[in-house]
Computed example of a mutant assay.
Amino acid sequence: MYLGKVIGRVVATTKDISLSGSILLIVARLNERLEPAGSTSIAIDTVGAGKGEIVIVTTGSAGRRAGTLQNSVVDACIVGIVDTVETDGQVEV
């Protein structure tokens, strides 16, 4: 799992049938201080996240366990919207 920030949305009218009805969001990976840290990815949204929100992303087979995606081609899935992150007494929002 990793923290990410939703930076956009992907619309694909032609896609694998297992993705029908799914919302695809572009997520930028963040470090524990909520600073950019690495590449972006496309993730299925299962929690109603919106642009600019900090989210929890899970990948691989764990991502397919979210919602009704067990038989899907999903590799990354948004499973939570972050309220705060606390590390070493520091709180990030």
Score class of each variant (00 low, 15 high):
residue 74 V to K: 07
residue 40 T to S: 14
residue 66 A to I: 09
residue 62 A to Y: 08
residue 69 L to E: 07
residue 67 G to V: 01
residue 58 T to R: 05
residue 43 A to G: 06
residue 44 I to C: 00
residue 73 V to F: 02
residue 49 A to M: 10
residue 36 P to Q: 02
residue 59 T to C: 07
residue 42 I to N: 13
residue 55 V to F: 12
residue 42 I to W: 11
residue 60 G to M: 10
residue 50 G to D: 09
residue 49 A to H: 05
residue 41 S to M: 10
residue 67 G to Q: 02
residue 47 V to K: 07
residue 37 A to D: 10
residue 41 S to F: 06
residue 62 A to S: 12
residue 55 V to G: 03
residue 73 V to P: 01
residue 59 T to I: 14
residue 47 V to F: 13
residue 46 T to A: 12
residue 71 N to F: 15
residue 59 T to N: 11
residue 53 E to S: 05
residue 43 A to R: 00
residue 64 R to I: 05
residue 64 R to D: 03
residue 66 A to L: 12
residue 33 R to I: 01
residue 45 D to Y: 00
residue 71 N to L: 15
residue 52 G to V: 05
residue 44 I to N: 00
residue 42 I to T: 13
residue 67 G to F: 03
residue 75 D to Y: 04
residue 59 T to S: 13
residue 58 T to Q: 04
residue 41 S to T: 10
residue 50 G to Y: 09
residue 43 A to K: 04
residue 54 I to R: 04
residue 55 V to R: 03
residue 53 E to C: 06
residue 50 G to R: 02
residue 53 E to L: 11
residue 34 L to R: 11
residue 74 V to R: 05
residue 41 S to Q: 07
residue 57 V to K: 01
residue 43 A to W: 01
residue 54 I to D: 02
residue 52 G to W: 11
residue 46 T to K: 14
residue 57 V to D: 03
residue 38 G to K: 02
residue 54 I to K: 01
residue 42 I to P: 09
residue 41 S to Y: 09
residue 39 S to C: 13
residue 57 V to L: 03
residue 72 S to Q: 00
residue 56 I to A: 13
residue 50 G to N: 12
residue 53 E to M: 09
residue 36 P to Y: 13
residue 35 E to C: 07
residue 71 N to H: 15
residue 45 D to L: 01
residue 68 T to K: 11
residue 51 K to L: 12
residue 70 Q to K: 11
residue 66 A to S: 14
residue 58 T to I: 04
residue 69 L to D: 03
residue 33 R to F: 04
residue 73 V to N: 06
residue 50 G to K: 05
residue 64 R to Y: 02
residue 62 A to L: 13
residue 49 A to W: 02
residue 46 T to V: 13
residue 63 G to Y: 05
residue 73 V to T: 06
residue 70 Q to E: 14
residue 50 G to M: 07
residue 61 S to N: 00
residue 62 A to K: 04
residue 40 T to D: 06
residue 66 A to H: 14
residue 73 V to R: 02
residue 34 L to E: 00
residue 39 S to T: 13
residue 59 T to G: 07
residue 56 I to T: 15
residue 63 G to Q: 06
residue 52 G to H: 01
residue 39 S to D: 10
residue 43 A to H: 08
residue 53 E to W: 04
residue 58 T to A: 09
residue 44 I to S: 00
residue 37 A to N: 03
residue 37 A to K: 04
residue 33 R to C: 11
residue 37 A to C: 05
residue 39 S to K: 08
residue 70 Q to Y: 11
residue 53 E to H: 14
residue 58 T to W: 01
residue 49 A to L: 07
residue 54 I to A: 10
residue 73 V to I: 09
residue 53 E to Y: 08
residue 45 D to H: 03
residue 74 V to F: 15
residue 50 G to C: 05
residue 40 T to Y: 06
residue 56 I to R: 15
residue 35 E to K: 03
residue 44 I to R: 00
residue 75 D to M: 03
residue 74 V to Y: 11
residue 40 T to K: 07
residue 38 G to Y: 10
residue 62 A to E: 06
residue 52 G to D: 06
residue 56 I to F: 14
residue 54 I to H: 03
residue 66 A to F: 11
residue 49 A to S: 13
residue 62 A to F: 04
residue 49 A to Q: 05
residue 36 P to H: 03
residue 37 A to F: 09
residue 35 E to Y: 07
residue 33 R to W: 07
residue 74 V to L: 13
residue 35 E to Q: 08
residue 51 K to N: 14
residue 71 N to G: 15
residue 64 R to M: 06
residue 64 R to F: 02
residue 45 D to M: 00
